[in-house]
Amino acid sequence: MSQQHLINSDVFDRSGYLIGNVIEVQSSTATDFSLIVQPLGSNQGSQAHIHSTSITDIDSEKKTIHVDRDQHEFTPNAGQGIQLVEERLIVNRKRVKVGEISVRRVVETEMVEVPIRREKLVVERIGDSADPVEIPLGETQFQGNEIDAQPAGSDRSQDTTASGSFETIQDAIAFLDAVVQQPGHPCEKVRVAILLDGDNGLKGTLYEFENPQTAIQKISRLDKILLNQCNQVRLELFLSNPALRRTYQDWITQYPSSIQDFGDEPRL
Rank of each mutant, 00 (worst) to 15 (best):
A48G: 06
Y17L: 10
R125D: 04
V179E: 10
V107K: 11
E61I: 14
Q38Y: 04
I216S: 08
V107E: 12
L239G: 06
Y207H: 14
D155I: 12
P186T: 08
S165H: 13
N43E: 15
S28D: 14
V11C: 01
A172I: 06
L202P: 03
I55D: 01
R246Y: 02
V25W: 02
R105N: 12
T29K: 02
F175C: 13
E146F: 15
Y17N: 11
Q217E: 15
A215E: 08
P186M: 04
L121E: 01
V98H: 03
I219E: 06
I219T: 10
E108H: 07
E139R: 09
S154A: 13
H51Q: 11
N92W: 04
Q47H: 06
E86I: 02
N228A: 12
P76I: 03
T161A: 11
P132D: 06
H49C: 00
F74H: 07
F238E: 15
A172T: 08
K189D: 14
V233K: 10
Q3M: 05
S257Y: 00
V67I: 11
V22M: 03
T168Y: 04
G45F: 06
D197Y: 06
L196C: 13
P266V: 01
E236A: 12
G198A: 13
D155F: 04
S258D: 03
A130L: 06
A130S: 13
D261I: 02
T247S: 13
H72R: 04
L237E: 06
D148C: 08
A174Y: 09
G45N: 14
I7D: 03
N77Q: 10
I50S: 02
F166A: 12
V133G: 00
L195Q: 15
I169N: 03
R246V: 09
N21S: 10
W251D: 07
N77A: 11
R105L: 11
D70E: 02
I58P: 00
D148N: 14
Q254S: 12
E210C: 11
H5V: 11
G144D: 05
S163F: 13
K97C: 08
H66P: 00
Q71N: 05
D177N: 15
S52K: 05
L235I: 08
L202A: 15
L244Q: 14
V123P: 01
K218R: 13
K120F: 03
S102K: 05
H66I: 01
F12S: 01
H72S: 07
F12G: 04
E265F: 09
P212G: 06
D159M: 08
Q143V: 15
